[in-house]
Amino acid sequence: MGRIISLVKLELLMQSPYPYLLIVAAITFSTIYFPTLQVAREVLHIEVPRTQSLNAEEIRLEIYKSSLILLKDFFDKFRNEIFIPWIAIAISASYGLSISNSLKRERLRFILSFPISKSKYLLLKIVITWTLLYISFYITFYSLLFLRFGSTYIASIYPIAYLREFILISSVSIFIAVLTMNEFVTTFSGIIGWIFSNYIFSTLFTTPDNYSLIYSIEPYQSFGLMDKITEVFKGDEIGIYLGIPPDALDNAVTLTNLYTIYIVVTSLILIILTLIIFERREID
């Protein structure tokens, strides 16, 4: 145990700040001028009106419905236009800088002068790098959201909503970083891996239509609004406004859970493969 603590200390001291600064810069740049972030504040600050057939209450209900629809738009837009292209690239590039770069021959020969196996060292490195990157991601995102909205609720929940994406992009990037030892290839691996793994899921485990249900309910699941959805939208409204057939709601929840399991299992398999490949690699 003492040896592991010493190696963690050594690894922490050897960390370059650049991968983490890159994440901070990418999130700051991507989110600071993103106007639709404003929507979330409006949605989450409105109480669900209990309608008493009063016009004012009905109006408030309509506003709330609109806000929920906007929340979904906001979520989709942020993931598809900001997170997936730019922050995903920044995450992968960070792994390129932290993993590919520090697994160079001379550095490894130094580490492997000491009693540790290659796979244990890599696992240690992955855990430390992943944790530090996620902390950088979370704190930056939290700070920006808090400064923008003044809501600790949004600020604390929203970054967690992207944990699934973060895990998959990280594992693909780590796999490619170790396999190629090339920073440039690693930079684009996460986003390509994300698209590829989603394609596999939508082909093997569901249909493209059902697959889209996952993203339809994701915003509400993330903010714990699923009960409000069923409370506010009645009958066909869920289908019309949110793109979810009423009878598919349960199916969508099951599919989302399956999708999360798929992401976690895929990521674990990739990390295990990475460790096996690295353990068998010669450091000449």
Binding site: G2, R3, I5, S6, L7, K9, L10, L13, M14, K104, R105, E106, R107, R109, F110, S113, F114, P115
Partner: peptide, 25 residues
Amino acid sequence: LLEDVEYPPSLTGYRLIKIVAELYG
């Protein structure tokens, strides 16, 4: 003692010696 090794450049010599000492108990 291997040839072609890169010691962590940002550490002081003493810090590295201290950590390696801990490694060897």
